[in-house]
Amino acid sequence: MYAISKFINISQDVVCENDKQIFHNQEDTFAAFMKNLYKSLNISYPKFYKMDDLCKLAFIASELLLQNETEKDIALLFSNNEASLDTDLKHQQSIQNPKDYYPSPAVFVYTLPNITIGEVSIRHELKSESAFFVAEKYQTDYLYKYAEYLLKTNKAQKVLCGWIHFLNGDYKADFYLVEKMGILEHSKEQINDITK
């Protein structure tokens, strides 16, 4: 039997940790919200500013869960509904006009959703199991079984599961950490509650 040790929800200008509000957005834009949230973490990681919005969201949600974590064998199971569509559209706009054809390499590198896993792995020095799934909604049944399998077979000591949505300024992140001990039972009911 495994447990959820901590969970984070970010949506509609609010960040909650274990269902308690820990940050409220006083700014108008997602960019300003992310910048203030990043600064509130008191970390120095200039690469954060180069990330696209999906990565920034995954980075912050993961940071809030892994900030004081010493375990490095943490599997990452991320998922969302639209892959990297927001950045794909930005890239597409930059190559739309043949007379103004200047695709940005810095934008292009984010036209894959699993780069979110890469950014979090680099930040926390993780060389662990990982997967990014694209699905209409959070696949509770599958991801519950996947996390349990990784832990039971000793392929990971902990599993960080996350749903990250970002498209046209609309955003939502639901992240939770699964391990041996925690505050909630690792069950489909609890996962559904966290990711609702």
Partner: peptide, 9 residues
């Protein structure tokens, strides 16, 4: 290296 490509652009 990505910055280098961006400078070329």
């Amino acid at each position: 290296s990505i910055d280098a490509l961006e400078l070329i652009v």
